[in-house]
Amino acid sequence: MANQQEKPPIYGVMAEFLNPQELYDAVKAAKSEGYDKLDAFMPYPVEEISHEVVNHEHSVVSKIVFAGGLTGAAFGFLFQSWAMGYFEPLQNLTNTLFGYHGYGFNIGGRPYFSWPAFIPVTFELTVLFGAFSAVIGMFVVNGLPQPYHPVFNVDSFDRAADDRFFMVIESADPKFDQEGTRTFLEGLSPQEVTDVDW
C-alpha cells in the first residue's frame, strides 16, 4: 500500500456508555471538540446518533435501490418486448449479432407487442432488482462481510449487541492523541475507557 508510514500503535480509544442519551451527548461533544473519525456502536438503531455520526448525510442506499429498480423495470420490459414483440428489424439485428432472436406467438390474432400484458412481469422484476440492490448495496456500502475488526478486541464490546453503547475515536483522526483523547473521553463520565488494539 502507498500509505506505509508508521501505523499508529492502537486503533483508537473506546468509551462505554449506559444508554443512548449518554452516547448521543458524547458524540455531540466529540464532534464539537473537532473529532471526526469516530464511530458509535449500539444494539439497536437510534436515528439521532446515526445522523450525528454521519454528519447528517443522506444514505446512498436509496440511490442504489432507485438505480436497481429502474434497471429491473427496463430489463423486464425490453426483454419481453424483444422476446414476444417480434419487431422484425430488431429480430434481424439480434440474429446477426448473437445468432438469436425472439419468438412471436400468435395468440388469437392479438398484436405481438401487447405491452399491457408485459406490465406484471416488468413490475415483479422492478421489485426483485430493487430488493437485491437494497440488500447487496447496504452490505457493500457498510463494508460487510468483514470477519475481523479491531473493536472486537475490547472485552466489554460483546455488550454492544446487548445493552451497552460505545464510542470509538480512531487514531486516524488528525486531532487524535492517545493521552489527550483518553482524558477527553474520561471527562464524558463513561463506564469505562479502553484502548482498542489493532
Binding site: D39, P45, S50, S59
Partner: peptide, 21 residues
Amino acid sequence: CMGWRGSARHWHHYEMAYLLL
C-alpha cells in the same frame, strides 16, 4: 451476520435499506 458490529454508520444504511425493502 456478516460480521455485524452495530456501528452507527452501518445502522444508518441499514435503516434506509430496511425501509426501502
